[in-house]
Amino acid sequence: MAMPQMPKWYDDDDQIVSCTEKVKVMTKNLNELYQMAQDAFEDALLMGCSEKQLHEYLRDLMARPKKPHQKTS
């Protein structure tokens, strides 16, 4: 299965992120993340791990990143 199409990115104020370089970095990072997840998933299946458990773990893993800092007013 192919990676989903990239959405238009918005900031916290619902303004579109239009900087070409920022969008390029985001696209590159998410493509790399997808490929790493795909590789890990395939390796785990080859080792006999449960596909259902892998999907559950990857969902949990992606829900964990937190914003490292808050904007100051």
Rank of each mutant, 00 (worst) to 15 (best):
M1W: 09
M1S: 13
V23C: 01
V23D: 00
Y57D: 01
E21V: 14
A37L: 15
E51P: 04
G48Q: 02
K22W: 04
L61I: 06
I16V: 14
S50Q: 02
E32Y: 14
Q35M: 14
P65H: 02
M1Y: 08
E32D: 14
D12F: 07
E42R: 13
P7F: 02
L58D: 00
S18C: 04
H55I: 12
L33P: 05
K67N: 05
C49W: 05
D39R: 12
D13R: 09
K66H: 05
T72P: 00
L46M: 11
E51H: 05
Y57L: 08
N31V: 14
C49V: 08
E56M: 08
F41T: 07
T20I: 12
D39H: 13
K67G: 02
K28W: 11
F41V: 04
M47H: 13
H69T: 12
V17T: 03
L30F: 15
D14M: 07
M26L: 15
T20K: 09
E56W: 04
Y57P: 00
H55M: 07
D13L: 06
Y34V: 11
Q5A: 13
F41A: 01
K71E: 05
M36E: 14
L46T: 12
Q5D: 08
L30Y: 15
M6G: 01
D13A: 08
Q15W: 03
K22C: 11
A44D: 02
D39V: 14
R64P: 01
D60T: 12
E21D: 11
M62A: 13
K8C: 01
P7I: 03
L45V: 15
V17W: 01
R64D: 03
A63Y: 03
A44N: 07
T72C: 06
W9N: 00
S18Q: 07
M6H: 09
A44Q: 03
A40H: 05
K67I: 11
Q38R: 15
K8V: 12
A63F: 05
M47R: 13
N29M: 12
M36N: 15
P7N: 01
H55C: 11
H69N: 04
Q53T: 13
Y10G: 00
S50N: 06
T20L: 05
M6A: 09
S18R: 07
Q15K: 13
T27S: 10
I16Q: 14
Y57M: 05
L30R: 10
D12C: 04
K8D: 07
K28M: 09
Y57V: 11
K66M: 09
Q5I: 09
L45Q: 12
K67E: 06
D13K: 10
M36V: 15
V25F: 07
